[in-house]
Design a protein around this nucleic acid. Structure first.
Length: 489
RNA sequence: GCGGAAGUAGCUCACCUGGUAGAGCGACAGCUUCCCAAGCUGUAGGUAGCGGGUUCGAGUCCCGUCUUCCGCUCCA
């Protein structure tokens, strides 16, 4: 097999050729970092999504699921810190290619001035005052002028060769209401940059109506949107993506053990799909985000190297406290459990452990783990195949039903098998071309089972089952087909 | 955002220094009836990413633009 880069290219090409993933709006040259899932990709994605949902909700009786709207009240993003932390005006130095936050750049210059004694300190004070005024007005041209007037230099290149100031707000925004205009700040709403806040704002609703007792979790799957400066590497970083996440609410003081629990529990989930453990590793965060107490990533060895596929974060009570402050609603929980002194733990704002996995990244993980090029050459003949070794429970198509010949009544029997199975799982019927060719086509889609109807079937009601990974065949009765497939799901 | 590479049929690519678009695979219809792709016949499919320029003539040269990949940067 070629090197990893070629392998990644081959996977991308395979995804397109076999109906898994297409560039968005491809007939119009595509839209940068946006992709569509095709007829097979959407099935695979759905199966991954369902598997996660079932593992998290159905199999944990203290976790429930919700589906919050993508639009949220704008104050949500003030409370979460997204508006303040991620909409700063930036400026690039053309020589060093270094990018600065404008306020940081000016403040650094002010600090330099202050070191120059009293006159400098006064100058610095005036500079900062001007900056604040301009920032408040969002007067970027004025800020640029301020940088030019003060001859503020880049610390790397030492030059004053600056680009214009640009705002990099990673949140997409739009206008809410039919009569709204873009100048009307009050009508501005954002497309959520993460799904987590939909859970936090519904914390009280779910806790009260579900009579949930701590510890408990709320799970959610949904789209999120980030206007990445650089979005790349196929579906690994897209501007529109889907998250599967769960916020687990715990009593303060127990967050350490629950963090550890979920860190291990989530890796177990990945390994339950039969993926080689050596392709996984943890990456503990040293530099923590503004809300985090402890954080780690579960990384997977993609063709382009180890990359984050899932994050586990100990978020303390940051989010609920923020929402309590901004909404003036008490985000507390009364804990009737008794402490060491026999008294109820009482009211508190719960701490949160978050598990957050990118569905699209999980798709890429499954795809790159499954993609295999096999050399089947014999001394007589060169031969090879591409096979997607999906876990059977995730495969887009579970069973292909193939009449060996398209005559002698074989298609009729095959159709009957189709009809008896298609209510239970996704099946595919094919009578064109030689049987070997049909097997190979199914390999390329990752179909785990092919059954072939031949003349013997008419005599004893058995079919050949051909297994995808081993290419081994066996004969089983028609009546056993459904149970055989379902045993793998 | 910067730098590098690329864009011709569904896929992989060819067309050497400008002269009326090709191959293999694939797809479709039929034949063949063969349990691991590439047997036979036929059919469809491209105004060469898009726009402009130079030229008698541009897939080929020049400029712009879009998209993708790689490296750097960024990534709550």
């Amino acid at each position: 097999m070629a090197n990893d880069n070629n392998r990644f290219q081959a996977i991308i090409a395979h995804c397109k050729e076999y109906g898994f993933i297409f560039p968005s709006s491809e007939i119009y040259d595509g839209l940068s970092a946006v992709y569509d899932y095709g007829q097979n990709g959407s099935e695979l994605k759905k199966n991954i999504r369902d598997y996660w949902w079932k593992s998290m909700t159905q199999l944990h009786d203290n976790i429930v699921g919700i589906d919050a709207a993508i639009f949220m009240h704008p104050t949500t993003w003030k409370a979460s810190g997204h508006v303040d932390n991620f909409s700063d005006p930036m400026i690039d130095n053309k020589d060093s290619k270094k990018r600065y936050r404008v306020d940081h750049l000016i403040e650094a210059h002010a600090d330099l001035l202050k070191e120059k004694g009293e006159a400098g300190a006064k100058e610095a004070e005036q500079l900062l005052a001007e900056m604040d005024a301009l920032l408040a007005k969002e007067d970027y041209a004025g800020l640029k002028q301020l940088i030019d007037d003060n001859k503020i230099k880049c610390s790397v290149s030492g030059t004053v060769n600056w680009t214009d100031i640009r705002q990099f707000n990673l949140m997409f925004s739009t206008e809410f209401g039919a009569t709204a205009s873009s100048e009307d700040a009050d009508s501005k709403v954002y497309l959520r940059p993460e799904t987590a806040q939909g859970i936090f704002v519904n914390f009280l609703n779910v806790q009260k109506t579900g009579r949930m007792k701590i510890p408990f979790g709320i799970a959610q799957i949904g789209k999120a949107f980030r206007n990445e400066i650089v979005a790349r590497q196929f579906i690994f970083r897209m501007r529109e993506f889907e998250q599967m996440e769960m916020q687990f609410f715990v009593r303060p003081g127990t967050e350490g053990e629950w963090y550890k629990f979920w860190k291990e529990e989530r890796l177990k989930w990945h390994l339950s799909l039969g993926i080689d453990p050596s392709k996984y590793r943890y990456h503990d965060h040293i530099k923590l985000a503004h809300y985090a107490k402890e954080a780690c990533d579960i990384e997977f060895e993609f063709p382009m190297g180890f990359r984050e596929v899932e994050g586990i974060h100990s978020r303390s009570d940051f989010d609920l406290s923020q929402h309590q402050q901004y909404s003036k609603k008490k985000m507390q929980y009364f804990d009737n459990d008794l402490d060491a002194n026999g008294k109820p733990f009482g009211n508190y704002i719960p701490y949160v452990i978050e598990t957050s996995i990118g569905l699209d990244r999980m798709f890429l993980l499954i795809m790159s783990n499954a993609y295999t090029e096999e050399d089947l050459s014999t001394p007589e003949k060169a031969d090879s195949r591409v096979v997607l070794k999906f876990p059977a429970k995730l495969a887009p198509i579970k069973l292909a039903v193939l009449p060996l010949l398209k005559k002698d009544g074989l298609p009729e029997i095959a159709r009957e098998i189709m009809n008896s199975c298609k209510g239970s799982f996704r099946c595919f019927y094919e009578e064109k071309d030689a049987i070997g060719k049909r097997y190979r086509r199914m390999d390329a889609l990752g179909t785990p089972f092919c059954v072939t109807v031949d003349h013997q079937t008419k005599e004893d009601n058995t079919v050949t089952v051909r297994h995808r990974d081993s290419m081994q065949q066996e004969r089983i009765p028609i009546s056993a087909i459904k149970a055989m497939v379902e045993a793998q799901l």
